[in-house]
Amino acid sequence: MLAGGGLRGDEVFGEIPGRNTVVVADKVAINAVLAGCRPDYFPVVVAAVKALCHPDFAYHGPASSTGGSAIVLVVNGPIRHRVGLNAGNNLFGQGTRANATIGRAVRLTMMNVMQTRPGFFDRATLGNPGKYSFCFAENEEESPWPPLHVERGCRPEESAVTVYASNSLYQVYNQLAATPEPLLRCFADALSNLGLPNVKGFNQALLVFAGEHSEVLAKSGWSRREVAAFLIEHARRPLADFKRATRLPGEPTASDETTVRALFERPEDVLIVSAGGRAGSWSACLPGWGNKWTKAVTAVIEEGSA
């Protein structure tokens, strides 16, 4: 497994400072073997683990929280095809070894190397099935937009993985929309429900547009930024809504009925990916872990001597 990544066993990938924990290559390799990875998958696992150790990800919060986040791994670049990662039908489901085992290797590394065990440093109230494994590739070839990793500063010929903490996944349905506005209203509504964790600060969201919806957006010519700007404009609610639901303290005042609170602030905080099957009017909304202190991190996948 180490040879698959062109690595020595004693190489340090990073640390989790709040836990006094250093992450070393041989321990990650052991967990990749346990997960059932092929050696050529290992560079993806390594890049994901390094991203988890990046200060911007702020590991302890999303990994420990009662919110029970899955660590979502979005893979871009040529390695997708070399290792056979699924970017199409049944995107989040079973059936593809690379998707299943890369995500599993990362979770096992979290448990066994980064001390993230349920009931101790993993305080998930419910967790979610994505905590077993959550890895997929972007369908760059049929996407309306440049690949996610290019949007986030990598070169197209590089491979990269973006790690992102999300405590849920819901599918968003719309079969009739032929233009972006009605389609995206469904997403804006999904992103602004009263049970969302992030009503007190701006965090991130990940949207995965599958074939039919991607095609609607492609035909419109809307850029990623235009899609994000529309969602930010419409993912907002009056303060009074939040107060009536005790998501914010205090009784609603007359001005609270007309004062709106946006759930997202910057277009780059709405991560947009094209992936999933061509058939079906489904896409997905993955709200970020409920705190603005963690950010998605994109790490280049170094294939070493593999």
Partner: peptide, 14 residues
Amino acid sequence: VFRATGETMAMSWG
């Protein structure tokens, strides 16, 4: 309910 987590944090710092 967070006692076990507190104990884990203490142990991780020896």
